[in-house]
Design a protein around this nucleic acid. Sequence first.
DNA 1: GCCGTTTTCGGCCCGACTGTTTTCAGTCG
Length: 588
Amino acid sequence: MRNREIAELLYETADIMEFQQIEWKPRAYRRAAQNIENLGEDIEKVYEKKGKKGLTEIPGIGEAIADHIAEYLETGKVKKFEDLKGKAPSGTTELMEIRGLGAKKTKRLADELKVKTIPDLKAAVNAHRIRRLEGFGEISEENIARSLRNYEKSHSRMALGKVLPLAEEIISALKTTLKTELGSKTPEIDFSKLIYTGSLRRLKETIGDIDILAEAEGEQVGKVMNAFVSLPAVGQVVSKGNTRSSVILKEGLEVDLRVVPPESYGAALQYFTGSKEHNIELRNIAQREGYKLSEYGLYEKASGKQVAGKSEEEVYRKLGLEYIVPELRENRGEIKAAIKKILPKLIEAKDLKGDFHLHTDYSEGRASLETMVKKAETMGYEYIAVTDHSRSQRIAHGMEIDTLKAQWEEIKKLSKRFKIKILRGSEVEVLKDGSLDYPDEILKELDIVVGAVNSGFSSSEREMTGRIVTALENRHLDILAHPSGRLLGKREAYAVNFGTVFETAAANGKVMEINSQPSRLDLNDELILRAKEYGLKFCISTDSHSMSDLASMRYGLGQARRGWLEKEDVVNTYPYSRLKEVFKKLRD
DNA sequence: GCCGTTTTCGGCCCGACTGTTTTCAGTCG
């Protein structure tokens, strides 16, 4: 799948064009890039099957860009882009990533100060050469210096599992401050409407910044803004106004707060939740229907009268759409489905009845079997599978057969004391040749076999596909754990043909895992969408290594919802009595 | 460069904030 690679190429080209003050084209290139990122199918395959015509069928791609993509796929480069790059000094696109520097200022820095790279910029700041440029000043120079420091600290997106708890802390701290400050005399601020929006609310796997929305009016606005910029976690105040303030946390993450009056709250929540692509589509519909949609509300174009804005539901309803939950708002077909009123009824947290992947201190877990069982029971689960590592995983204290049998004994004892159903499981290594890491007589004694690839990540696509296919054809395997092997921000997915994997899994009735560990989220939303087309079933598992990990279920759940999954698609929503429909050994 | 119930040319989201302006351009989301 080279979609991301091609999208990156187009984004970079757009940056260079922008730097050269070319108008409109950058927007067209970015739109094309975005659509390629969200395509859901392999663009290389599209080109192989339908040629250039197939490419132009993708929204945002016309004759010219289709030619460029075709050239890139055929030859590995695009002549026109190379020429373009030659004209722009290298390093300038990186400069444009510095907050406060756009195409125009970057161009002037390059032309007038010969500043073309990040080190150049640093030198210019230190020598106070920037403040002498017309249109720049002392404050601009200081801001650039700060942005530079922040850029070096963190300019990449952070994992959902890190940002979500952070956002919750900030909101809670903000509420506490406001409660103390406002006392009981001032009119109440509705704290239920102080929430995070943006990609965080859509539960995207990585988050660039935290967006917070609050509802307030009159003199309350200033109080909210003051409380926000004075939070202890704040490192730098970027801007502060009556509707928007922006800060950078001490650890480098940016947080934006927007404050709107009650009549606009729903429209603002909708607007700031995004995604951008979803909103553009929504605005187009509004236009067609004779409305204007902004963060302040939905207005009749002719009269300027507001017809919706208090709640998100109202906005969608007025536009003739079913309400769309945040996780679906990616312009991946949800708007069409909402018009036809055929949106899926997504799986919810309360539907989950168990967890099929957790570790104890028998292998690399940190808590005892009993602790994990106890915790799972208090969470209201009906069943859990204990899945410590198999023997070849020495690094993770993989279990020899004797130890595994000892664990079965303990499970037997605990089963008498706890109501929760404890399943004998194992995260069994899929070995290089595709065989499983325990002999058949052991595998058939296990209630659940979770197969996993934890080694040999650099194998060729053919080898890896063959290895996994062999495992999926093994009658003892039930679930394929973290099917892509990626670690967010650390390790790419291994090379594997997912089409073949999903097809084989479907043919053999295997379940695909959605691993909830914040660093994994594997399958991710895109692969979930693809896998679902093969008719596959899924399980959402935590892969817990400690008691607190059991709570990370919500991250996997978020990806499942982003992948349009309903309760019926996810087998750990089934009551225990139904699991034998899914897992062979529970039937035998 | 793309697109079309505003349709083959002429738009392309638009409002907030900042810094340097003396009325606005650049940037951001």
